[in-house]
């Protein structure tokens, strides 16, 4: 009986994973190609905020998030603290990275399922059922990292980031630098979208916060990649293992090239875990110097934002 249940679950998971690229492919086939041809449309002026900022930080959350407007309290507090430290930087945090059209999981026909899982997560965290949310979003990270599906997924996400940047006052053609801050799987999504953002003239860099990412072509277009990690975060090593392009045996990969060109900086910022109260945005866990984990992460990111903006990478000949 147990074997039967496990077998059924395994088949269901396999079907789920097999179908996972269909969201972005269907979007591309239905309207994505048309939208991109008109593309990267400019929003009407009345939809765009006025800002004096010349630097933008776009935050892309981890695989546990339900939508662009569903960030956790810890993340929101952390983003507020970053914005307070660097008031000249505009913080953008309303993009759902695991969708091509910014539709969160609570804005879909399957809202009943994701809403239920979210309630389970809030009330019975020990019940593993809620990890289906993570599983769903992880499949989108895999889609993004796959050279067959990734570009359609990433172009949709890039378009949403582009819209959001404009809503927050980014002036197209200004060349103002954009820092994509990706937490966990958000780092891979940022790399995928970064390729297209750079393609329309937006200088992009990646701040990976415990990020899990592959040797995405987007690495070629990142001005710089800062990989911030916690010493107790084992999950972030997944990227080193699962993506052969990140192995030392692949020096010619985009990752190898970025490292060779000195565009990668790795920093262990404290004893953080990957997720939960003792992770990067935790406010009740403290480092040796008395700062809480959220403050340590904030200070590391703020230090990067205060550095001169990275110069454009030299694109490899294709």
């Amino acid at each position: 009986m147990i074997a039967w249940i496990l077998g059924t679950l395994a088949i269901a998971a396999l079907v789920f994973v097999l179908l996972s690229p269909l969201e972005s492919l269907r979007w591309w086939a239905d309207r994505g190609e048309r939208e991109v041809r008109d593309t990267f449309e400019l929003l009407p002026e009345e939809s765009c905020a006025d800002t004096d900022s010349h630097r933008f930080l776009v935050y892309l959350s981890g695989v546990g998030v339900l939508g662009g407007d569903e960030l956790s309290g810890r993340e929101l507090a952390w983003l507020e603290s970053v914005a307070a430290e660097v008031p000249d930087v505009t913080v953008v945090a309303d993009v759902f990275p695991y969708s091509v059209d910014n539709s969160g999981l609570l804005q879909r026909a399957t809202v009943w399922l994701w809403g239920f899982l979210d309630r389970v997560r809030r009330r019975m965290y020990s019940n593993p059922l809620h990890f289906l949310i993570n599983f769903r979003n992880i499949t989108q990270v895999l889609v993004s990292s796959d050279p067959r599906y990734g570009p359609t997924q990433s172009i949709g996400l890039a378009q949403e980031i582009w819209h959001s940047l404009q809503r927050h006052g980014y002036v197209p053609g200004s060349g103002d630098p954009v820092y994509l801050a990706g937490f966990s799987g958000g780092a891979q999504m940022a790399l995928g979208a970064g390729w297209f953002l750079r393609g329309i003239g937006v200088p992009v860099s990646l701040i990976s916060i415990g990020g899990i990412f592959g040797d995405d072509p987007g690495l070629d277009r990142m001005g710089h990649v800062w990989h911030l990690s916690g010493s107790k975060d084992r999950m972030q090593h997944l990227g080193d293992v699962v993506f052969p392009g990140r192995w030392p045996t692949a020096p010619l990969s985009t990752w190898g090239r970025a490292k060779r060109e000195g565009r990668v900086t790795k920093r262990v910022i404290g004893p953080m875990q990957h997720d939960g109260a003792k992770a990067y945005f935790g406010r009740r866990s403290f480092g040796p110097d008395g700062r809480n984990y959220a403050e340590i992460t904030r200070d590391a990111v703020v230090e990067i934002l205060r550095e001169p903006a990275p110069s454009d990478p030299v694109l490899p000949a294709r």
């Binding site: 041809r37 593309t39 067959r148 990734g150 390729w195 297209f196 329309i200 072509p217």
Partner: peptide, 12 residues
């Protein structure tokens, strides 16, 4: 997908 990645359909 490689064609899309090349950025061909994107208007600058």
């Amino acid at each position: 997908a490689q064609d899309i990645l090349s950025g061909a359909p994107i208007v600058p």
